[in-house]
Nucleic acid binder design. Structure first.
Length: 505
RNA sequence: GGGGGUGUAGCUCAGUCGGUAGAGCAGCGGCCUUUUAAGCCGUGGGUCGAGGGUUCGAAUCCCUCCGCUCCCA
């Protein structure tokens, strides 16, 4: 599969006139002594200085000078002969520097004029307010700490090519404030979820990423090989069966936040590796799981955004109001008025409805699978405000507990927000005999050609035979939740290094 | 897999009817001590994604391929 070489990606030969100039400067810098010093120590961050002294007026600052040592990247420059302004960016923000020949001295001012945008520098000086009123640092000494050999993208428009933004995320993070914000939201979301579970007594576990039998979900796995043991291993598609083994073991409230891998297509909503939160709570049912799901999402929004009223792609979504709760059958009937209640369990009526919708109906599908196909086609995308859809058919819920009143459905829910599945949870199936039967049905489906169907996990059955307490569990897609909170349309915007095709053949 | 968009200087983008490549930022050389998309004067920089075709002549028209991107399945 030969690919045409793309000049902007070639690693070794892509030097240009600007890089030549920077390399010459680097060479001169090397000749002057230690070219990559690491003895500069800062004592402040740009954002902290702005927060702390932003309200202090110029006169007060002159009376009681505050000195600071800052380090960061030179992002812009305004040179006016013997005095200049520049912007320094560090992890806490961006602050303006004032560099006057009088304060800096001839030699250091000369060094400043040699600098290039993107260089990493260390500065020392005093806080003051400019004539225009901007809090700035009057620099009294300056050092080059690391030379930028490559020019930065344009200062005003920044980086707009999405391919370069994802491939060279380091450049994107330097120049795109919105990208930095998205990943701050992500970190705060994960931290809030972790804290919310920890403070309720949940135990954080790490279970295998490489599994001999990939379980806990219906998906095609990645396959790998362990050489020393000469055995096939699968990258996990879910941690579920291991976390429930831990519940058997006595960790009655347990959770994990980690990566899952699914060997499926790539789209604006799918990345081959994605982050999942799963938690399990013994002596709870799916109603309790829905309550906790709701609470955790609210606290994540509050932690990351400071509000529960969000806007997603122009749509106002209120996470503060109680989430709606509807059964699958109620939702399907509401959006398919031509179906009567009795039709919902009638495979023939459902097949006719699928045909009307232009969806093919596989002969192996029972009424439950057919009903879910209709749900996904006619309802799912319309559920904009947070809605729990409950009581999924048994056929599509091989790990969920049967409903007491209606053994054809399970005590399961999915949470839909902005037309997308955000979480999936249920009262866990803890009857080992029922679970074994469900696994056998999955194996039959796999043998009939369903690549996504589950394997039979005998050790998991053995674990259940020791007795698992009645338990509720939830899985929450972190990437999709972050997309929602950060108002991003593509999963690539919320994953630091999304999967892309390789740069060169 | 199907359809739409797109690929031109380091970055962001123009490029008319097919006539041999442009701007801003960045760079380089000057001037300039309160600017903030600083300003002014001067100046270098191009495999127009790749390959093929049509043509006297192709960034432009046609074909194939590659990448990115959006929508649909």
């Amino acid at each position: 599969m030969a690919r045409s070489p793309k000049r902007k990606w070639s690693m070794e030969q892509d030097s240009n006139d600007q890089m030549m100039v920077r390399r010459e400067k680097q060479e001169r810098w090397r000749e002057q002594g230690q070219a990559y010093p690491n003895d500069f120590r800062r004592d402040a961050l740009a954002g902290d200085l702005l927060a702390r002294y932003g309200d202090m007026d110029g006169a007060a600052l002159e009376q009681e000078p505050i000195s600071a040592r800052l380090a960061g990247r030179l992002m812009s420059r305004r040179v006016m002969g013997k005095a200049s302004f520049a912007d320094l960016q560090d992890q806490g923000g961006r602050i303006q520097l004032f560099l006057g020949k009088d304060h800096l001295g001839e030699a250091a001012y000369g060094l400043f004029r040699e600098l290039d945008l993107g260089d990493i520098i260390g500065v020392e000086g005093e806080i003051f307010r400019t004539r225009a009123g901007e809090l700035s640092l009057r620099v009294t000494s300056l050092r080059l700490l690391s030379k930028a050999l490559r020019p930065l993208p344009e200062k005003w428009h920044g980086l707009s090519d999405p391919e370069i933004r994802f491939r060279q995320r380091y450049v994107d993070l330097i120049v795109t404030e919105a990208a930095r914000r998205t990943f701050r939201i992500r970190a705060q979301t994960v931290a809030a979820l972790r804290q919310g579970l920890s403070q309720r007594g949940f135990f954080e576990a790490e279970t295998p990423m490489m599994q001999p039998i990939p379980g806990g979900a219906t998906a095609r796995p990645f396959i790998t090989h362990h050489h020393a043991l000469d055995m096939t291993l699968y990258l996990r598609i879910a941690p579920e069966l291991y976390l429930k083994r831990l519940v058997v073991g006595g960790f009655e409230q347990v959770f994990e936040i980690n990566r899952n891998f699914r060997n499926e297509g790539i789209s604006t909503r799918h990345n081959p590796e994605f982050t999942m939160l799963e938690w399990y709570e013994a002596y709870a049912d799916f109603h309790r799981a829905m309550d906790l799901t709701e609470t955790l999402i609210r606290s994540a929004a509050q932690a990351a955004l400071g509000t529960e009223a969000i806007t997603y792609q122009g749509l106002d979504i209120d996470l503060g109001r109680p989430f709606l709760r509807l059964t699958v059958e109620e939702a399907v009937r509401a959006h398919n008025p031509e179906l009567a209640q009795a039709d919902l369990r009638d495979p023939h009526c459902l097949a006719e409805q699928l045909a009307r919708l232009g969806v093919g109906c596989h002969p192996g599908w029972g009424w439950g699978k057919r009903l879910i196909e209709i749900f996904e086609k006619t309802v799912e995308g319309k559920l904009q405000q947070p809605t729990f859809i409950t009581h999924y058919p048994l056929e599509v819920s091989p790990l969920a507990r049967r409903n007491n009143d209606d053994p054809e459905v399970t005590d399961r829910f999915e949470l839909m927000i902005a037309g997308r599945e955000i979480a999936n949870g249920f009262s866990e199936l803890n009857d080992p005999d029922d679970q074994a039967a469900r696994f056998r049905a999955q194996v039959a489906a796999k043998e009939a050609g369903d690549e996504e169907a589950m394997f039979f996990d005998a050790d998991y059955i053995r674990a259940l035979e020791y007795g698992m307490p009645p338990t509720a569990g939830v899985g929450m897609g972190i990437d999709r939740l972050v997309m929602l909170l950060a108002d991003q349309a593509s999963i690539r915007e919320v994953i630091l290094f999304p999967h892309l095709r390789p740069e060169q053949a």
